[in-house]
């Protein structure tokens, strides 16, 4: 009656108005470029390529198997395979991507490329300050732009990266053991065995089938 509800509401808003000057805790927003909210670990937006070591070209985990390109729903990944090979993350010689582009203006951040990658080579980044002045070329990210170190991966997703590293370590140990066994077997067998052929027989990952698919 006579608007005492309105008066109550006006008092409440006045309290909020004055309170926002008195106590900082009331303010729900942060002054973005200077202050930032702590990032949630599960946050993700666009994919990046993980590399080990210091050299981004040498350390890229990607073996250009085309699984992500084929699985990508909006078809924003473009890969061109190299003709030569280099040792991959676990030490086996593999192809590597000559071109690896992601059109982030098309990417829908679905993380399917990450889920299907058998090499833990592509992961989701958390960088969100991505505005550019060119909407075509600046949003087509090439291999260099996409390559980020494993340390970066550890920084943004620590638990996930630790699990990936553990898996990779067992993988490396397995490969190293096999290489050792092969090296031990080598003197016994013919010394002219092609080391390339030995590693392909030792490979237990579905790389050839995937690239043939």
């Amino acid at each position: 009656m006579f608007g005492e509800g309105i008066l109550k509401g006006l008092a409440e808003t006045a309290r909020n108005f004055l309170g926002s000057y008195v106590s900082k805790n009331r303010l729900t927003t942060v002054q973005y470029p200077e202050e930032r909210l702590p990032q949630i670990e599960a946050y993700r937006n666009f994919p990046f390529l993980v590399y080990d070591g210091d050299d981004w070209q040498q350390g890229l985990r990607c073996v250009s198997c085309f699984i992500c390109e084929k699985e990508c729903p909006p078809k924003c990944i473009i890969i061109e395979k190299s003709t030569d090979k280099k040792p991959d993350a676990v030490g086996k010689p593999q192809f590597y991507p000559k071109v690896f582009n992601i059109d982030v203006s098309v990417c829908m951040s679905c993380q399917i490329c990450v889920e299907v990658c058998p090499f833990d080579a592509i992961k989701m980044d958390t960088d969100y300050e991505l505005s550019t002045t060119n909407r075509f070329s600046a949003l087509l990210w090439d291999k260099h732009r996409l390559a980020k170190s494993n340390e970066h991966y550890h920084k943004i997703h620590p638990t996930e990266a630790a699990a990936v590293d553990a898996a990779l370590a067992t993988e490396r140990a397995k490969v190293a053991a096999k290489a050792k066994a092969a090296a031990e077997a080598k003197p016994a067998a013919a010394p002219a065995t092609n080391p390339n052929g030995a590693s392909t027989t030792a490979a237990d990952k579905p790389v050839p089938t995937a690239s043939e698919k």
């Binding site: 808003t13 108005f17 309170g19 303010l27 927003t29």
Partner: peptide, 13 residues
């Protein structure tokens, strides 16, 4: 600014 403060925001600053 006033509406911002009423809603516990800063408003344009």
């Amino acid at each position: 600014k006033g509406l911002g403060r009423i809603q516990n925001r800063y408003g344009p600053n």
